[in-house]
Simulated assay, not measured.
Amino acid sequence: MSPLPRLMRAVTALAVAGLVLTGCSDSDSDTPREKGASDTQGQQGAFPLALTHGQGKVTIPRKPERVVVLGFADAQIAAALGAPVVGGTRNTSSTDGNWLGVSPAFSSEVLTLDAINPNLEKILALKPDLILMTTAQPGYGSAYKKLSAIAPVISYKNKLLQDSGDELTTLIGQALGEEKKAEQLIAKSHKSLADFAAAHPGLKGKGYAFGQEASGTVHAVVAADGPTARFFGALGMKLPEPLVKLGIESGGKTQLSQENLDLLDNAQIAFFGVPDKKAGEAFAKRPVVSSLKLTTSGSLHFLDYNESGMLLGPNPAVTDLLLAKLGPALKKASA
């Protein structure tokens, strides 16, 4: 993350599973839970370990030795924490099948699972003792009970793609028995963000906009407390109130009509995910978009779907890569 308009559905045609903003519904979960609920049992790194996530409660009997990752952030965070990953979903838009930001990269032998459609037999054959699906496609959320019969499952914490990257890193670190590594990864991320903000004080108070264009439809991420807002907030930036007031349709986003595209000019910088350079050029030439101050000043920037996917679900494992990618544009905005 399931018909349109649901989160990430356009990835089938665009071959970018998991990264396109085409909607999401909270009904994707089998067992919704109250936001903020979480509990653990046992001391740090001790097993058996009981955890509560967005689709239920799970007990992990021992430190995992065979981990399956089903979402892009699951892969990024698990790799950064050195998890023993034996299976994962393949990103068909990359040459090696890895999600951008997965370091060290997984081998092709590991990336054998479809990112959209669950294959329970394949997952069972991997003999996992932990399944991570905090950012997996909605189809995996729907299969939660069946997956739980195979191995302990860790799903999103509150809502799909609405958890902060720090929350997911902490949760995954607990499940792996790698809390200290998770804490270190989060601390490193915080330092990188703080250092960037300190080096570019002109960003403080600047408005940003972020979204994606897919098949002619424009979506903007307008969740003022979502993971994207937290990333920019750490740099001192804010989501302009006129965009916030549009309201959330689903998955932290809303569709922008031709009539309200001018609201983007309440931001001083904007990033939009597009399938390719040609699509970005076409977007910039739209009647309203072409006359925006953002466009004429060179402050409208385009990302490919893999890059915008990191900004859709930023987490400590990709903080430095995100800052490197957005850095030149952000430095210009800070001036």
Rank of each mutant, 00 (worst) to 15 (best):
K285I: 00
A50Y: 11
R62F: 04
S2A: 15
A317E: 08
P32T: 09
L111V: 06
D304N: 15
D276M: 04
T31Q: 12
V288M: 06
A78R: 13
D30Y: 06
F283C: 08
G56L: 09
D262N: 10
L263E: 10
D39A: 10
L14P: 03
S250K: 07
G207Y: 03
S297D: 15
K188R: 15
T295Q: 14
P242F: 06
S257M: 10
G23Q: 10
L4H: 06
F47K: 09
A267I: 06
P3V: 13
T217E: 07
W99F: 14
L81V: 09
A143R: 13
G56I: 03
D28I: 09
C24Y: 14
M8P: 00
D225L: 09
G82N: 13
E213H: 02
S164Y: 05
A317P: 09
G216Y: 01
P128S: 11
V58C: 03
T22G: 13
A194P: 14
F272N: 11
Q258W: 10
L126Y: 02
A324H: 08
G247K: 11
Y144D: 04
Q258P: 04
A17H: 08
Q212L: 01
K325L: 05
G88P: 02
T134I: 07
K206D: 06
H190A: 03
K285E: 13
I269M: 05
N260P: 02
Q258M: 10
S25A: 10
A78M: 11
K293W: 01
L311G: 01
G42Q: 04
G45R: 12
D195P: 01
L323R: 01
I269N: 07
K127S: 10
F72V: 00
P227E: 05
Q212M: 12
G236P: 11
A333S: 09
D129P: 03
T59E: 09
G71M: 05
G88D: 05
A223W: 11
D114L: 01
S250D: 15
P314G: 02
L161P: 00
Q162Y: 00
A46E: 15
E109S: 08
L176G: 07
A223V: 11
K293E: 06
F302M: 08
S299F: 03
S299Y: 00
A136T: 01
K238R: 15
G216K: 05
G216H: 03
L51R: 08
K278W: 00
L100S: 00
T228M: 12
E34D: 08
T22N: 10
G207S: 02
A335C: 02
D96P: 07
V288N: 06
Q268Y: 00
I186P: 05
F231K: 02
A317H: 12
A279T: 13
L311M: 13
L171H: 08
R286F: 01
L7Y: 15
T169F: 03
D265K: 03
A73M: 05
L176N: 10
P5H: 07
T92G: 04
E241R: 11
I150M: 07
S107C: 03
E259W: 01
V102F: 00
K157M: 09
S164E: 04
T135R: 05
L120I: 14
V16S: 09
D96S: 12
A223Y: 12
